[in-house]
Design a protein around this nucleic acid. Structure first.
Lengths: 219, 219
DNA sequence: TAGATTGTTAATCGATTAACAATC
DNA sequence: TAGATTGTTAATCGATTAACAATC
């Protein structure tokens, strides 16, 4: 991929700092969930481009770096606005900023982890969070600290998860990432996502099994 | 939920052991990926029903236990075959067996973890794997052991992930679960899934941000 | 100008959902 | 028989994809 004719003067730099306001004011764009889930992938790719000193990239570059096909990349990015240049591509810094802004990771999000077992401690030490805008402010055995706009992370055994979730909600936490393999019940307006470590292995096992005995498990 | 009229004699028990063979021989059913991803949820719910001594359940019971609506539950289960009874519901043991068989977790899957940092150690100690049919047979710093039909789990820093993936493939591993936040390149036929611990937080942050400033981040 | 690449359109595909006949 | 619940159908919805006009 040849990418050399991009000339980024101060003019351009200023212009995108200025354009940030109108873009968010235009309308509260509804970004499809499938797209939202891929934005972090693009952001990660853009970060590596920045590290490599690459100033521009095409949808095809992003496609190869993320494993998402280029048509989907362009469609996804079009939901954010028209931040590319036809015949040229995307400015890495500019697109990085726009995606980070959309996701909301230009800010620093406090994270409270409940559960001090192996997993909780590993998550507390996980360097990937910090570099992506999440700061672990608490690692607790039971009660979440009171702090609004904190994301709560449940790393307890499944038996304790519901109770912990309720304590988190009571403490003013409205976003919860649940690592306990159990469905938790929360009031309306509380956003819950889950990471099921076994689930992914089970999906792999399903496909592995199909490979081993293509006609189904008859052995 | 009243569930008491189910009478499960030996006749019934024998009949489903017998019916297992024809079911898998009939045809190699194509189960939609979205359904495959939910089967572990149903299995988990059925396990808790068994623990509670519940012998039967309806699609609505499964819906409440998994957070998936009942129409979807029935549609999903219909891809496996007709294992329910109209007007009655599903036999918990029977359905548990059928789903476990479909996923392939009636067998015991060996798992090799590469990366002995906090995350690798936490995953090695994670009790949820064992109880769901996955046995950690190796926790290694660099090279995966040679063992076919092993699922490899990458818990290294992102820089090492590609190299580890290649070593795994060379060692005969054809299913990989990647915890490193980087896209890995593997040959055709190798099944890769990924768990991105930051990605879920980023999706939460997106929605959290929308709550905080509904019109977009203009502050 | 010629070549490259975006942003958008329209077609296709797959997943979700509601409704209900079948049937216990 | 009356009540309950499945399994399936058909409608709807949302996501993916290919193609290409717009445009640098």
């Amino acid at each position: 991929v040849v990418w050399s004719r991009i000339q980024l003067g101060e003019t351009r730099l200023e212009s995108w700092v200025m354009s940030a306001e109108p873009a968010s004011a235009e309308k509260a764009r509804e970004i499809p969930e499938a797209t939202v889930a891929r934005l972090p992938l693009y952001l990660r790719a853009l970060n590596t481009f920045v590290d490599q000193g690459t100033s521009g990239c095409s949808s095809d570059d992003l496609a190869r770096a993320t494993g998402v096909n280029s048509a989907k990349v362009r469609k996804d990015l079009s939901h954010l606005g028209s931040y590319g240049t036809r015949g040229v591509g995307y400015d890495v810094d500019y697109l990085q900023y726009q995606i980070a802004r959309q996701i909301g990771v230009t800010a620093d999000w406090p994270v409270a982890i409940v559960g001090i077992g192996h997993l909780g401690q590993a998550l507390a030490n996980y360097s990937g969070f910090r570099s992506r805008g999440f700061r672990v402010v608490a690692l607790l055995d039971t009660d979440p600290i009171r702090h609004s706009q904190t994301i709560g992370l449940i790393a307890t055994p499944p038996e304790a998860a519901q109770e912990v979730a309720e304590a988190m909600v009571a403490a003013g936490i409205s976003s919860i990432l649940n690592f306990a393999p159990v469905v938790i019940d929360v009031p309306e307006g509380i956003n819950v996502r889950k990471v099921d470590l076994s689930l992914e292995l089970q999906i792999l096992a399903y496909h592995e099994q199909r490979k081993a005995t293509p006609q189904g498990r008859t052995a």
